[in-house]
Amino acid sequence: MSRQRTYSAVAMSVVAAIVAVLSIGGVGQSLFSEHDGTLISTAKAAEKNSSVADASQLFSPVAAVLRHPRCMNCHPRDDRPRQGDDRHPHLQNIVRGEDEMGFVNGRCTACHRDENSQHSGVPGAPTWHLAPLSMGWQGLGDAELCATLIDKEKNGGKDIAALVEHMTKDPLVLWGWTPGGDRTPVTPPHPQFVKELTAWADAGAPCPATAK
């Protein structure tokens, strides 16, 4: 319950941020389109935007989702995918392999198929795989997490629009909201997350200041 309350509080602040962004019209848009995806420019963007929104407020609902075990388990900062809400290392000594798809015999798709198995509980979604090591998120604070996320060198060359697309449409990402079995789905609901994500993106994908 407390988690839900937190989320609704966050949502309210997000709404406020959206209003703030909209009120300055094209500024946010131009920042967004000019965005080159580097940390520095984002910091500048955030600086420019500081009058209209607290950057950490915009990114924090996004960060909360990224930190959910359904997302984080496949974004480790080492070679072991994680499992469960306690994020224990994947049983069977599963490792990422050269292509993020697993090592010999322990290929992701040896067990994870295109959809959740109704009978065995093995989760599935198309192209089940690990995020690249450069997109390892475990243990990152909001600032580092945000910086990593938008860094094209790390995120596979995705600009902000592509990032939004990934988190809005990629079936593997969407799986997090319908994980099946007794797995906890990502909260808040996906449409709400998209709103939060879009708000952050529209504000120029500002990153919070580096950790206190």
Partner: peptide, 24 residues
């Protein structure tokens, strides 16, 4: 096990080891 947890059902699908209990 029927749940891709034990490997007793391992076969090769197009040359790659898979758990036949999870392949439909």
């Amino acid at each position: 096990c029927g749940a891709a947890l034990c490997g007793a059902c391992t076969v090769h699908l197009d040359g790659e080891a898979v758990r036949s209990c999870q392949i439909q």
